[in-house]
């Protein structure tokens, strides 16, 4: 996947891949983890990438695997980014579990600036369902504790809800849960699935055609938005979304992964639409252009 190409200011996907190791085992993982200790090797390589990165880079992603497995190296990396690219937004993807340790969260706070956004997923309002997806018992409680610590320190969080067959029926309840338990997050992103990696072998348990969860998603987004929380929808083309959700849909797919079908050429919403994952092994049966 990504990582070794040089950064380009015109790309929407400039990412530092910090480790292939992970402490969750999410059933839909698109970047299945590797046990080899690659932290030092990648850290040196990433520093060199940073040193050569264009200053006008708008956003830099940091992901893996699980970046917090770097321990304190993660903070050194963030400090380096801050020093070399002071005006670049940092989008750090993490499962958030390491921040259940208050002192680790505190250390993040000491190196965090307004530019830092943490993207953290929750798969359900119910701990049992979340843990079933991550396949790590206790991961929900740790992630939730981590989120609370991050909230205490005012660190910006993008709460990610990946929609699968496991949770699509509970989306509205998840929204209610997010409002009552995590009102302090910056915003909530409801995400369509990319069917690669482990998601392929677990397709039967995971796949639900977005057109089939359309109403559930509409209810969830409008409810949460009605409570005054900011929401986005990622990775779901406009034709599969209720019209009321079009204003919430973002151009979320990395440019190098985005593709459109032939039908899309005649669609009047093509410009605003995120398109499809070229990498995804499964597409909706209901893709259809909006004709003028």
């Amino acid at each position: 996947m990504n990582c070794d190409h040089l950064f380009s200011p015109t790309s929407n996907d400039n990412t530092l891949f910090v480790t292939a190791q992970c402490n969750n085992r999410c059933i839909m993982c698109c970047q299945p983890p590797d046990r080899r200790d690659d932290i030092e090797m990648r850290y040196r390589r990433n520093l060199s990438l940073l040193e050569n990165a264009p200053k006008e880079l708008r956003e830099l992603g940091i992901n893996g695997g699980e970046p917090t497995l770097l321990g304190d190296r993660l903070f050194q990396l963030l400090e380096a980014v801050h020093e070399l690219l002071p005006s670049t937004g940092i989008h750090l993807l993490s499962n958030g579990r390491a921040f259940s340790d208050f002192s680790y969260a505190k250390k993040l706070h000491s190196v965090a600036s307004e530019n830092l956004l943490l993207g953290i997923p929750l798969h359900s309002d119910y701990s049992g369902d979340h843990d079933e997806v991550t396949r790590i018992p206790g991961s929900f409680d740790e992630t939730m504790r981590g989120l609370y610590h991050l909230g205490e320190f005012g660190i910006r969080v993008e709460l990610r809800v990946l929609i699968t067959r496991y949770n699509y029926r509970r989306l509205r309840k998840i929204s209610d849960f997010l409002y009552r338990h995590l009102p302090f997050v910056d915003f909530v992103a409801f995400m369509g699935m990319e069917v690669t990696g482990w998601a392929v072998r677990h397709m039967d348990q995971l796949w639900i055609d977005p057109v089939d969860f359309r109403e559930y998603l509409e209810d969830a987004v409008l409810t949460l938005s009605g409570w005054g929380m900011d929401c986005c929808v990622y990775n779901i083309p406009h034709c599969l979304l209720s019209e009321s959700l079009h204003p919430y849909a973002c151009q979320s797919i990395s440019d190098w992964k985005t593709e459109f079908s032939a039908d899309c050429d005649s669609c009047r919403k093509r410009k605003a639409c995120c398109g499809l994952f070229r990498t995804s092994r499964k597409q909706s049966r209901a893709l259809a252009p909006f004709l003028a």
Partner: peptide
Amino acid sequence: GSELYKDLAANCFVADNPSPMFLDNYACR
């Protein structure tokens, strides 16, 4: 594991096994 159970657990009326972290968060609220 029933839908009712999930509702009750998600909303802090019952718990599979309330961990210290869960209790910390609940106490915070």
